[in-house]
Amino acid sequence: MSKLGKSVFYLCVSGVLLLSLWSLLKALLHHPGQPSVGAAFWLGGFACTTAVAGVFGMLGLAVPLHRLPGPGFYNAVNHGTISRLYRTLRVEWLRRLLCWAHYHKPRHRQAFYGGGRAQLHVLLDNTQGAEMCHLLALIAQLLLLPYFLHLGRYDLAAGATVGNLFGNFYPIVLQRHHRARLHRLGLRAQPGAVQLYPSL
């Protein structure tokens, strides 16, 4: 498939996810008593987070969202703060989960980081793409909270908050942690084209 064809495909997938999310929000408005508290917490925490992150993940594969900020945004990494967050929040468990669930496949590992010092710039670029998609998803999901609260669905709001924490904030900290380690090797974000690979 050509590069243009892939971009169109990812845009279509992003559109389908966005329509699904919109239908879900409309259903909540028209059926205020549904679903139950437990199901709503799960819906807000998993389904909503997955849909929002999926929209921006697919959109990021189609268009270079990572170019919105300049290199200064990606290079502004406070190593001490990121290291403390990484340890305190136990983000290492997310890294292990991703390695077990996704990156155990050689094809996926090669795409995100080919291995060896010569390929470290690919890893650096991909951390930028992954972080930007999760950052936009985090902001979008925060903007959904007033809607849930307006409906009186505190269960949905709580689930969405928890999902946003683990589904978007944790990955941002993980990518910043990767980049802090790369900075110690002298690698910094540079202006120009960046390869983007789908990553949680």
Rank of each mutant, 00 (worst) to 15 (best):
L187S: 01
H183A: 12
R95Q: 13
A39H: 01
V122N: 14
I82F: 11
G159R: 00
P146G: 12
P69Q: 08
N164E: 02
Y74R: 06
R176W: 08
F41G: 00
Q175P: 03
L144T: 08
R181D: 04
L156Q: 01
L136F: 13
Y154F: 13
Q119C: 12
A40K: 00
L143A: 13
V63H: 01
P191F: 07
L21A: 06
G15F: 12
G57P: 02
Y147K: 11
Y74W: 04
F46H: 04
H31L: 07
V63G: 03
A62H: 01
L68V: 14
A47M: 07
L59N: 04
V8C: 12
I139D: 09
Q119I: 04
V55K: 06
V16N: 08
G129A: 11
S2C: 02
Q195W: 06
A193V: 12
R176A: 06
V162C: 09
F73P: 01
G129P: 06
Q190L: 14
L21W: 03
R153P: 06
A160P: 05
L18R: 10
Y170H: 10
Y147T: 11
A157H: 01
G33N: 13
C133F: 02
H66P: 00
A158V: 12
L28Q: 10
G159E: 00
L145T: 11
Q119R: 15
L17D: 00
H134S: 10
P32V: 10
R67W: 10
G152I: 02
L124R: 07
L68G: 07
R184K: 14
A193Y: 10
Y86K: 02
L59E: 05
K26C: 13
Y74K: 05
L29W: 07
W42T: 00
L145F: 06
V8G: 09
T88W: 14
L196E: 13
N168S: 14
C133T: 15
N126M: 07
G45V: 02
H177M: 09
L21Y: 06
C99W: 11
L174R: 05
G186N: 03
N126S: 09
L156G: 01
A189Q: 05
H183Y: 11
V37Y: 00
M132S: 12
A62I: 02
A47H: 05
L156V: 02
Q175M: 14
A111I: 02
P106R: 12
R67A: 15
L25Y: 09
C99N: 14
H150D: 05
V173S: 01
H104Y: 15
A130M: 02
K105V: 14
A40W: 00
R117M: 06
H108T: 07
L143R: 03
V122P: 03
S199P: 03
P71V: 03
V91S: 02
R109F: 14
V16D: 08
L151S: 13
I82Y: 04
L144C: 10
